[in-house]
Design a binder for these strands. Sequence first.
DNA 1: GTTTCTATTTTGATTAGTCAAAATAAATCT
DNA 2: AGATTTATTTTGACTAATCAAAATAGAAAC
Lengths: 220, 220
Amino acid sequence: MATIAVENYLKHVLLLSEGGDDLVSMGELAAALAVVPGTATTMVKALATEGLVSHRPRYGVRLTAEGRRVALGVLRRHRIIETFLVEVLKMDWTEVHAEAELLEHAISDTVLDRLDALLGHPATDPHGDPIPTRLGKLDSQVYATLATCGIDKPLRIVRVTEQSGEFLQFAEQHGLRPGAKARVTERNLAASLLTLKMDRDRTVTLSLSAAGHILVAPVK
Amino acid sequence: MATIAVENYLKHVLLLSEGGDDLVSMGELAAALAVVPGTATTMVKALATEGLVSHRPRYGVRLTAEGRRVALGVLRRHRIIETFLVEVLKMDWTEVHAEAELLEHAISDTVLDRLDALLGHPATDPHGDPIPTRLGKLDSQVYATLATCGIDKPLRIVRVTEQSGEFLQFAEQHGLRPGAKARVTERNLAASLLTLKMDRDRTVTLSLSAAGHILVAPVK
DNA sequence: GTTTCTATTTTGATTAGTCAAAATAAATCT
DNA sequence: AGATTTATTTTGACTAATCAAAATAGAAAC
């Protein structure tokens, strides 16, 4: 039985390895978990002897098949709980992340399956993040971001990959939520800024780094 | 911030002191928490220095006002979660106790208040146990039990004070659930048995000790 | 009023997770 | 290549919660 700490380590290794590089560094991992690097090293070594990760000392860590299975379970719980909090309890999508962080380690499979059914087996959570299936399949579709997409093409926001309350509240305030329509009108690399037009001609300006967290798909 | 272990100790001191005796013994407490007695002693001493209980060494332990406040919070969470699991997720009232035991330490006040509102601010959980209010008021109405009530009087079951799955499934199987109507037809002290008539002339026999866990009120 | 029984407390160890700070290895820069 | 910077690992220490087993204090029995 994985402890809460173990579940969190595995979840964060999964999330950090999503974005490309194969091995997750101790630095990244320690920062994500808000522990000191030495703690991450110690824990990773323990996880490695349990067969949940493989550790290449001095280079980084990666999930084993078993570790990935556990991590996907945690992620599934997290995202179903977030969806429940928004859809049923009508909480704000900008504030449910922290709540789900707590509950994801305490909910049983029975309760989770009931929630999933109540919600109609959703494919994504309120941020647009894909929900792993019971069988451990995770949709890995790659989207463009506002920082990388074409200019003046009609777009639909599909996902916002940032959990911080401030960022999400900023996004919500300007209508940058999953499902919203948008169009990039100008991208200024020198100033690292980007301008876009939302519904009803609302204009929004944001930094390229922020834009990188907003995933979009072309509107057919 | 109280840890999970601290919350559990305080909750069990509260539950064990409900049934009468002022001081809760280390033996009872250790048994309720499934730890060895020495562990309970150690923990209780720590709780005492935190001002959450007062410990009379060799005699027992009692909650302070602050400890009671914390314990009532845990109990409120537990019972609201149980109610949610039955009313919204349609789980069986005989199986929700263990689930709530896990979730009660992970749910925030925000989520709890939303659940409470969704459920219409219930006064009791599915077992008939009273739910402490946000302000820490706990209904302490005293009921007769099937072991102590009068013979041949029409009764309504108001509460079942046993959490074990087996007991509850037995109760459910024979219609002994909160709200059901019943009438004691015979009480045999020698054999420590009791017979009662339920709806549609169903007859049920159970031990006096089991009967002591089924609380009843006279039907007006 | 001793002795005996039983519950409680104490003592010494263990496990999980963490931090601070010293040691070390890899990468980078002359 | 040698020196410096930076990330990682190691070491030693700490906290919370637990157990096993020895010591002890009340209560009950004689």
